[in-house]
Measured scan of single mutants.
Amino acid sequence: VRQEELAAARAALHDLMTGKRVATVQKDGRRVEFTATSVSDLKKYIAELEVQTGM
């Protein structure tokens, strides 16, 4: 499950970095929206997932 969450989070980051205004991911069973202003929060979430998956 964590691998899927990590892939979704990375895709969301890619979307935001390429101009999409809002990206949505499932985080702990709930839907979370990230915007360009919350990229740093999304990067932290990705880092947490990488630690949890041993990457």
Rank of each mutant, 00 (worst) to 15 (best):
Q26C: 15
L13T: 00
A12S: 02
L16K: 00
T37S: 14
L6T: 01
T35S: 08
L16C: 02
I46P: 00
K44C: 09
A7Q: 11
V32Q: 06
L16D: 00
A36S: 11
L6Q: 01
A7T: 09
T35A: 05
G54L: 07
M55V: 14
D41C: 11
K43G: 03
T37E: 15
M55G: 12
D15K: 11
A11E: 08
A47Y: 12
E5V: 09
G19C: 05
A12C: 03
R21L: 15
D15W: 05
V39L: 15
R2L: 15
H14W: 09
A7L: 12
E4F: 13
L6C: 03
D15A: 12
V22M: 09
I46Y: 00
Y45Q: 02
G19T: 03
L49A: 02
L42F: 02
E48C: 12
L16R: 01
V51Q: 15
E48D: 10
D15T: 05
S38C: 09
L13N: 00
L42A: 01
A12Y: 02
H14Y: 12
A7S: 09
A36Q: 14
T37D: 15
I46T: 00
A12V: 03
E48G: 05
S40H: 12
A23K: 02
V1Q: 13
R31Q: 13
K20R: 09
T18A: 13
A23H: 02
A36V: 12
E48Q: 11
G29S: 04
G29Y: 02
E50S: 06
A47D: 06
A8E: 12
R30F: 10
K27F: 08
Q3D: 10
E4G: 13
T24W: 07
Q52D: 10
V1A: 13
L6D: 00
D28I: 02
R10D: 01
F34G: 01
L6H: 02
M55I: 14
G29T: 03
T18V: 07
S40R: 08
V32E: 05
V1R: 13
T53L: 15
S38F: 04
R21F: 08
T24Q: 08
L13E: 01
Y45S: 01
A47T: 08
T37Q: 14
G54M: 07
K43D: 03
D28P: 03
E33C: 11
D41E: 14
T18Q: 09
K20P: 02
T24F: 13
E33T: 09
I46D: 00
M55W: 04
L16A: 01
A23C: 06
K43L: 14
G19Y: 02
L13R: 00
A36W: 15
A8K: 08
A9T: 02
T24C: 13
E5T: 10
V25T: 04
L13S: 00
E4I: 13
K27E: 03
R31N: 12
K43Y: 11
V32C: 07
G54Y: 05
G19P: 01
R21P: 14
K43W: 08
T53Y: 15
D15S: 09
R30W: 07
R31M: 15
G19E: 03
A47H: 14
S38G: 08
R30G: 06
E4K: 13
R31I: 15
R2S: 09
K43F: 10
Y45N: 01
H14G: 05
L13I: 03
Q3N: 11
S38E: 15
G19R: 02
T53F: 15
V25G: 03
A47E: 11
L6I: 05
V32Y: 09
Q26E: 12
I46V: 05
E33A: 05
A8I: 11
L42C: 02
E33W: 07
A23R: 03
S40M: 10
G19A: 03
D15N: 08
E50D: 04
S40L: 11
R10A: 04
T18R: 12
V39F: 06
I46F: 00
I46L: 04
A23Y: 01
D41Q: 10
Q26A: 07
E5Y: 10
T35D: 10
A7M: 12
Q26D: 09
E5R: 09
D41Y: 07
A8V: 08
L13V: 02
K20I: 08
V51C: 12
K27G: 04
G54S: 11
Q52H: 10
V1H: 14
V25E: 02
T53E: 12
T37N: 15
Y45C: 04
R30N: 09
V39C: 07
V22F: 09
K43S: 05
V39R: 03
E5F: 07
A9W: 04
V39D: 02
Q3H: 13
R21E: 12
V25L: 11
R10I: 10
K44T: 11
E50G: 04
L13D: 00
V39S: 04
K20T: 08
L6N: 01
L16P: 00
A47N: 08
A36P: 08
H14A: 11
E4S: 13
E33K: 07
L42S: 00
G54R: 09
D28K: 04
S38K: 06
D41L: 11
Y45I: 07
A12G: 03
Q3V: 13
A36L: 15
V32W: 09
T37W: 06
E33N: 06
E4A: 15
T24L: 07
A8T: 07
A23P: 02
E5K: 07
S38M: 15
G19M: 02
I46N: 01
S38D: 14
L42V: 02
G54V: 05
L49D: 01
V1N: 14
K43Q: 11
A47C: 10
A11R: 14
A12R: 02
K43I: 14
T53Q: 11
A47G: 06
H14D: 07
S40F: 05
G19Q: 03
V22Y: 07
A11K: 14
E50Q: 06
E50N: 04
V25Q: 02
G54K: 08
S40N: 14
D28L: 03
Q52F: 09
L6A: 02
E33M: 07
A9Q: 01
E48R: 07
L49Q: 01
S40P: 11
K27D: 03
L13M: 05
A7D: 11
L16H: 00
S40D: 15
K44L: 10
L42K: 00
Q3K: 12
R10P: 00
V39Q: 04
V51P: 05
L49W: 03
L13A: 01
A8Y: 08
D28T: 03
T53D: 09
G29C: 04
M17K: 05
T18D: 08
Q52A: 13
V51W: 13
R2Q: 11
A11D: 06
D41W: 08
K20S: 11
G54W: 04
R30V: 14
A36E: 08
L6E: 01
I46K: 00
E48M: 09
V25C: 07
A11I: 08
V51R: 15
V1T: 14
Q26N: 12
E50L: 07
G19D: 04
G19K: 03
A23M: 02
L49Y: 02
V51A: 15
R21W: 06
R10C: 08
V39P: 01
K20N: 07
R31W: 15
L6Y: 04
T35K: 04
T24P: 04
E4T: 12
V22K: 07
Q3S: 12
L16E: 00
K43H: 07
A9G: 02
R21T: 14
H14T: 07
L42W: 01
E5P: 07
A47V: 07
M17G: 03
D41R: 06
V1W: 13
Y45H: 04
V1P: 14
H14S: 07
K27T: 06
S38V: 04
L42M: 01
R21S: 13
D28C: 10
A9L: 10
M55K: 10
V1C: 13
A12N: 01
D41N: 06
Q26L: 15
G19W: 00
V39G: 02
